[in-house]
């Protein structure tokens, strides 16, 4: 889990999103413990208050829960929840910026679709 050096988001949001990524990828399984605030702070060289803020954000969203005296655990259903939300945000975060850039260089939506279809097929044949 590493943070971008120059991002338009504050560190705690980047960190929260990096933890979400690790839940998505299955690195942190549901009902298992995640890395502690102290470890996060030391490994990433960030103030523990910042690490705490990221963790608390995920607790507020019920993606993590606290086991007294033990640490933070992944809430059952967290992965599904993150998937759903990321899908909702996919349009705003990725598709609209893509179309904006396409517009700048005179690519139509159809041109973009053609590229996507080709890349998607290539990607599948890569995997095969």
């Amino acid at each position: 889990m590493f943070l971008a050096q120059n991002s338009e988001h504050p560190i705690y949001l980047q960190l929260a999103s990096a933890i979400e990524d690790d839940i998505l990828s299955g690195l942190f399984q549901e009902d298992t413990q995640i890395i502690s605030t102290t470890e996060l702070s030391i490994t990433l060289s960030i103030n523990p208050a910042t690490a705490n803020k990221a963790i608390n954000l995920l607790v507020d969203q019920e993606l993590l829960y606290k086991k007294r005296g033990m640490g933070m655990f992944v809430t059952p259903g967290a992965r599904e929840k993150i998937l759903l939300r990321r899908k909702e945000r996919f349009k705003d975060d990725f598709v609209l910026p893509l179309l904006k850039e396409a517009g700048k260089i005179n690519l139509s939506a159809d041109d973009v679709i053609a590229i996507l279809t080709k890349e998607g097929n290539d990607d599948e044949s890569d995997r095969a």
Partner: peptide, 13 residues
Amino acid sequence: RELLYKEILEIYA
């Protein structure tokens, strides 16, 4: 420098 920053955070923790 990096090592010192980590040690500072470690003792602070």
